[in-house]
């Protein structure tokens, strides 16, 4: 008999506590990010598709077309080429194509780069119905799609 009343009392009390906690939450600020109008700040180690780092002074890619990233890529989605201009000691990039449809964002290309010329972008608003949109030309960055 005693247990019966104890059960009712503890049960009722726990219901009150639950309702009180729920009510307190009503006065907190919403945590929702209104996505199309605003977006979260991406963490520093976010992995988007890769992009070429450029020299701050000249604006030219730091890449010297050593092909290490192309060799490191397990999916074979990087295709690049470079020429050595007359009188220069290093190669200059002429083509850097990324087939993003097969890229798994493993990051081996970034790791393999000995010249600090590759980085992950923070571009995550990618949506398209055409496969061609993901054949990216990193040398001449495409216009951002709306």
């Amino acid at each position: 008999m005693w247990n019966y009343f104890k059960l009712i009392a503890t049960g009722s009390w726990s219901l009150c506590v639950g309702m009180w906690i729920v009510l307190l939450h009503a006065f907190r600020r919403p945590v929702t990010v209104q996505y199309p109008y605003e977006s979260v700040k991406l963490p520093a180690r976010y992995r988007g598709h890769i992009e070429l780092k450029r020299d701050a002074a000249t604006g030219q890619p730091k890449c010297i077309a050593c092909m290490a990233c192309q060799r490191a890529c397990p999916s074979g989605c990087i295709d690049l080429d470079g020429i050595k201009p007359e009188g220069s000691t290093r190669k200059v990039l002429t083509r850097y194509k990324l087939n993003f449809t097969t890229c798994s964002l493993c990051g081996l290309c970034v790791e393999s780069c000995a010249f600090d010329a590759l980085q992950f972008s923070k571009d995550y608003n990618l949506a398209s119905v055409r496969k061609e949109d993901y054949q990216m030309d990193l040398l001449t960055p495409q216009e951002k799609k709306p």
């Binding site: 939450h25 009503a26 006065f27 907190r28 600020r29 919403p30």
Partner: peptide, 10 residues
């Protein structure tokens, strides 16, 4: 609306 306040939504 009310549950959205409880659950920190809009």
């Amino acid at each position: 609306k009310i549950p959205s306040w409880f659950q920190l939504r809009y």
